Simulated assay, not measured.
Amino acid sequence: MDILKPLTTRLTAHPKLLISALSIAAPIAYLSYLHHTLSKTTTHVRSSGPLTREAVADISSVPASVLGGGYKMVRDKAWKRVPKTEMPDKGGEEMVKLYLRETMGLFARRFPQAYLLRVVAPGGARTFDKEYIGGCVFGVGEVVAGVYKVARREGSEKSGVVEFEMVMGKEKREGAPEGRLVVGGREVEGEWEWWSETVMWVEEGGAMPLEKRGVRWLHEVAAWWLLGRGVGYLKGLKRAEGKGE
């Protein structure tokens, strides 16, 4: 017996209901396919636990006031390695700047959450504009896409990293989660490693978005896709160099 027959009969008998069901199912199916595909080309790790200096030793912009107990954290990191020969002839600091202009621009123009942030973000709507992001150097204090404020920036010929503070309001709400977005690249054994990492923390007893399975899944799709687009953009710059453009 076809156990789905009652459902399919009802849907086909009510076209509007069928259209509604398809409008929900199609995006979910596409995102599921995209998540599966990206997981094959992206290295990924997630961790959680108490927020201590040892746990975030590589992220210097995390304030000392939240370390040492009373806070829990979630870290989610994705990275790719590509041959050095596929990267443009530029230093690490310059490449990170170009990478961020591309990926932050894509986020601001294409992601639904960016449209919501335009309304509520303390950084202002202009920080989402293509021209604004295209002129960013990602210096300390600079705000991109409304909520991402540069808290630390370092770079050299062989590496570069930018740590963004996620500023969700002009004043911090008591018990609200805080976090950092860390984006960087570095030369490792003849390759370039590019990574994007989100770290969130909240007082014990509080809740963080990345603790929710659905939110975490959507975050992975977005982070992995942007990582791939950023690396692909840099590869494109290398190809352009070879053509003398």
Rank of each mutant, 00 (worst) to 15 (best):
Glu86Ala: 07
Pro50Tyr: 05
Pro83Gly: 02
Gly91Ala: 09
Gly69Arg: 04
Thr37Ile: 13
Ser65Lys: 15
Lys84Glu: 14
Asp58Gly: 01
His44Asn: 05
Thr52Glu: 05
His36Glu: 08
Ile24Arg: 12
Pro88Cys: 10
Gly92Trp: 00
Met95Ile: 05
Val74Lys: 00
Ser60Val: 14
Val82Ser: 04
Arg46Thr: 15
Thr52Arg: 05
Pro83Cys: 03
Ser61His: 04
Lys40Ser: 11
Lys84Thr: 03
Tyr33Asn: 02
Thr52Ile: 13
Val45Trp: 06
Pro63Arg: 03
Ala57His: 12
Thr52Trp: 12
Pro15Arg: 07
Val62Ala: 03
Pro15Ile: 04
Glu54Trp: 14
Arg81Val: 03
Ser60Met: 12
Met87Ala: 01
Pro63Leu: 08
Arg46His: 09
Ser61Val: 10
Ala29Cys: 08
Met87Val: 10
Ser32Asn: 11
Ala78Cys: 14
Glu54Asn: 15
Arg75Asp: 00
Gly91Trp: 01
Gly70Asp: 07
Leu34Met: 11
Met87Asp: 02
Asp58Pro: 02
Ala13Arg: 06
Leu67Ile: 10
Ser60Gln: 13
Arg75Val: 06
Thr41Ser: 12
Thr85Asn: 14
Ser48Ala: 14
Thr42Arg: 06
Leu67Asp: 09
Thr12His: 02
Leu38Gln: 13
Val45Arg: 15
Glu54His: 13
His44Asp: 06
Ile59Asn: 02
Glu86Lys: 09
Lys72Asp: 07
Lys72Leu: 04
Thr85Ala: 14
Tyr30Gly: 08
Lys40Asn: 09
Ser32Pro: 00
Leu31Ser: 06
Ala26His: 04
Gly49Phe: 03
Asp58Cys: 07
Val56Gly: 08
Gly69Trp: 04
Ala78Glu: 02
Val66Asn: 00
Val62Gln: 03
Ser65Ile: 10
Lys16Glu: 12
Gly92His: 01
Met87Phe: 15
Lys97Gly: 04
Val66Cys: 12
Ala13Gly: 15
Lys84Ala: 14
Thr12Glu: 01
Ile24Phe: 12
Val56Ser: 09
Trp79Lys: 06
Tyr71Leu: 02
Ile59Gln: 03
Ala26Asp: 05
Thr12Leu: 03
Met95Arg: 07
Gly91Ser: 06
His14Cys: 09
Ser39Ile: 08
Lys16Ala: 13
Leu17His: 05
Gly49Thr: 07
Val62Arg: 04
Lys77Gly: 00
Thr85Lys: 06
Pro15Gln: 05
Ile24Met: 07
Leu38Cys: 08
Gly70Phe: 01
His36Cys: 01
Tyr30Phe: 14
His35Glu: 05
Met87Ile: 09
Ala13Glu: 06
Lys80Cys: 04
Gly91Phe: 03
Glu93Ser: 11
Leu38Arg: 06
Val56Lys: 06
Asp58Ile: 09
His35Tyr: 09
Ser47Glu: 13
Leu31His: 08
Leu18Trp: 02
Ser32Tyr: 07
Lys40Cys: 11
Leu34Gln: 10
Thr43Pro: 03
Arg46Asn: 11
Ser61Lys: 02
Glu93Lys: 07
Ala78Ile: 12
Lys77Ile: 14
His36Pro: 00
Thr41Ile: 09
Pro27Val: 10
Met73Asp: 00
Leu17Cys: 01
Glu86Gly: 13
Met95Ser: 06
Ser39Lys: 07
Gly68Glu: 00
Lys16Pro: 00
